[in-house]
Structure formats: C-alpha cells, structure tokens
C-alpha cells in the first residue's frame, strides 16, 4: 500500500500537479477534493530496512528518554520521490502530542502499525497537500482509542475538559533515512 501511495505521488509530481507555483502558494491546502472519506489503515508489513531502523530508533529513545518509556509514539514522514529518482527520504521522530482536535484530519496518519509495543504513524505530507485528506470519523475515533494509553493523561481542570497538564511535544530531533532501491543509507 505504501509503495502504491509513493508511486501516485511520483506520478503527480511528473505531470506537474505539485509544481513550483503550488509550492510557493502558502495559502493553498490541497488540490483534489474527494467525495468519499477514507479510513486510517493499520498495516503490518513495511520495508525490511525501515523496520530494522525503526526498531533501533525505539530502542535508542527508550534508553535516552524516560518519558518515552511510558508514553509517546513514532512518526514516520515520507518525502516526495520524483519518478527519475530512486531515493525515498524518510524522517523518523518520536512524538507525544494528542489527537483531541478530531476535525484536524491532516494531523492524523494515513497508516499505522505496531512495533515493540509502540505505535508507528505514517504520513505522506505531499499527498495530503494534493489530495484533501478526508478521514472517516469512525476510523479517527478508533485510532484515538488505540493511541490514548500512550498519551498524557486527561484531567478536568475547572472549565477545561480533557486538559492534559503533563503533555509536551517533540520539537526537532529525529533521524533521516534514505531508501535507495536495495541500498540504504542513513544520516543522523
């Protein structure tokens, strides 16, 4: 499924949908407006090298970050790959923030999986900038139920419901991985 998505992005890039004019227009959000809502899909199979790097990343962060031992998840961001380029850039980072804004579809991943008791969330931002992300409420709620145990606890504080006093979010930091056909390079 991930390969299909990346191929679609590559095709759109080549035909010019994701051209420079759109890149320079900071107010544009997406181009294609779908009729149907899609579901956030749970997957269980990814590139072997990417899987091994994710496992290493989780192990490293568990040692470095005590909060990550009990909370948090891993975001995986894929970057556009033109058809004539064999390299897919993947950025990996841990994250702790919530999904309480249920209407903010772009904040939700397209896919997720489990690895070593951590949720791995997959995003293809370029696709979201082309095809308006429209997720079903049911699948978002299902996803939220699954990720909730890994978020800061909610409390009612005065008039504020669902406030998470201990919540932080990760700003910068992470790893970039390059997937080049069968050859894989990694940069910290």
């Amino acid at each position: 499924m991930l390969k299909m998505v990346l191929t679609l992005i590559s095709t759109l890039f080549v035909i010019g949908v994701f051209g420079q004019n759109n890149l320079n227009n900071a107010t544009s959000s997406c181009i294609i407006h779908k009729q149907k809502k899609t579901n956030i899909e749970e997957i269980n199979s990814i590139d072997k090298f990417l899987r091994s790097q994710l496992t290493l990343f989780i192990d490293e962060e568990l040692v470095k970050d005590s909060v990550f031992k009990t909370r948090g998840y891993v975001n995986v961001f894929f970057t556009l790959k033109p058809l004539n380029n064999d390299t897919t850039t993947v950025f990996i980072m841990k994250q702790f923030s919530n999904f309480d804004d249920i209407d903010n579809d772009k904040n939700f991943p397209s896919f997720y999986m489990w690895l070593n008791n951590k949720m791995i969330l997959f995003y293809v931002r370029q696709l979201d900038n082309i095809v308006c992300k429209k997720l079903s409420l049911r699948s978002k709620k299902k996803f939220v139920r699954k990720i909730e145990p890994f978020l800061a606890k909610q409390k009612r504080v005065g008039r504020f419901k669902n406030f998470r006093p201990d919540e932080v979010f990760q700003l910068h930091g992470g790893k970039t991985i390059y997937l080049i056909n069968d050859e894989h390079l990694m940069r910290h």
Binding site: F160, V168, F169, Q170, L171
Partner: peptide, 8 residues
Amino acid sequence: GGSASGLY
C-alpha cells in the same frame, strides 16, 4: 531538539 510545552 527536545520536548516543548504544548498548547490547549
């Protein structure tokens, strides 16, 4: 990088 305080 590191963790930053979030918004409500």
